[in-house]
Simulated assay, not measured.
Amino acid sequence: MADSFLIEKCKQNDRKAQLELYRKYCDGMFIVASRYLKDGAAAEDALQEAFIKAFQKLDQFKGDVTFGAWLKRIVINKCLDIIKARKMEVQSLDDGVLHIAEGEGDWDIGEQVTMDEVYHAIDSLPENYRVVVKLFLMEGYDHQEISEILGITESASRTNLHRGKLKLKQTLKHLEYGTGY
């Protein structure tokens, strides 16, 4: 069934349509939630809460993006809310001290490094760097969007991305030369 038809049925509180829409998107959205919340149960809880919120706010879905993209943003925001609720300690940044000139094309890594090693290295970053790196690289958000999502300045987003990138390169360099973590 097409998403638009299912969405219209869901707006009328059709439980079968809600279940079908849930089944269509739950696996992919669980993967998204798992990128942010390492605990499978927490990712599952975030997913359930995101779907509940999506069904409650379905009248706000205008169709200017795909339903999947709209739902993904809700899932990510729910995960970030959970991270914030855990009283994530974020290193404060003095915006005036460091201004990063972004070179977005300098993410090259050695040929010997596998994608699994890259994902593991990203997961090993400190929380504030990891979240910004994932939002930027994996989800494709720009610094303005990241700043709005996380409630930080664009400069802080750039700085966290830059510092995360440096830590990643350092970690991956050790892997490339066989010195391990």
Rank of each mutant, 00 (worst) to 15 (best):
E102T: 11
T114L: 06
E111K: 07
H120P: 05
K134W: 05
Q144F: 03
V133M: 06
L135G: 00
L98A: 14
D106A: 10
E111H: 04
V132P: 13
V118C: 08
V113Y: 03
Q112V: 13
V132T: 08
Q112E: 11
W107Y: 09
E104T: 08
M138F: 04
I109S: 06
E102A: 10
I122E: 10
V132Q: 01
V118A: 04
E145R: 00
Q144C: 10
V133A: 01
Y141Q: 00
L125W: 03
N128L: 11
H99L: 13
H143W: 06
D142T: 01
Y141E: 01
E117A: 07
R130H: 08
E102H: 05
L137E: 07
D106Y: 07
D116K: 04
V118M: 08
Q144T: 10
L125A: 05
E111S: 06
W107K: 12
E104G: 14
V131L: 08
H143F: 13
S124H: 09
V131N: 01
D142I: 01
R130W: 02
L137C: 09
D106L: 15
E104K: 13
D108M: 08
G105F: 05
H120V: 12
H99C: 13
E127A: 09
E102M: 13
E117P: 15
R130N: 08
H143Q: 12
H143G: 01
Q112D: 12
G103S: 11
E102W: 06
S124Q: 15
L135S: 00
S124K: 11
I109A: 03
A121R: 01
G140Y: 02
A101C: 11
V132S: 01
E104W: 07
G105E: 10
L137H: 05
H143S: 04
I100G: 15
E104S: 12
E102I: 10
G103N: 10
V118W: 05
H120S: 15
E111I: 14
L98G: 13
G140S: 03
D108G: 06
L137K: 04
T114S: 15
H99R: 14
D108W: 05
E139D: 06
L135E: 02
L98M: 15
P126C: 07
P126W: 04
E104P: 15
V133S: 00
I109G: 02
M138E: 08
M138I: 02
L137P: 04
M115L: 12
S124E: 15
L98N: 15
D116Y: 03
L137V: 02
V131H: 00
E127L: 13
T114W: 01
T114I: 08
I109D: 03
M115Y: 05
G140D: 04
Y129W: 09
H120A: 13
H143K: 03
G103A: 09
Q112G: 09
Y119V: 10
V131I: 15
D116Q: 11
M115F: 05
Y141I: 00
G140A: 07
H99A: 14
E111L: 05
D123G: 12
I122T: 09
E127D: 13
G103P: 09
I109R: 05
A101E: 07
H120R: 13
Q112A: 10
W107G: 09
Q144W: 02
M115W: 03
D123H: 07
W107V: 11
H143M: 12
F136C: 02
D108C: 06
M115Q: 09
E145Q: 14
N128V: 06
M115I: 12
G103V: 14
R130K: 14
M115N: 09
A101K: 07
Y129K: 07
Y119I: 11
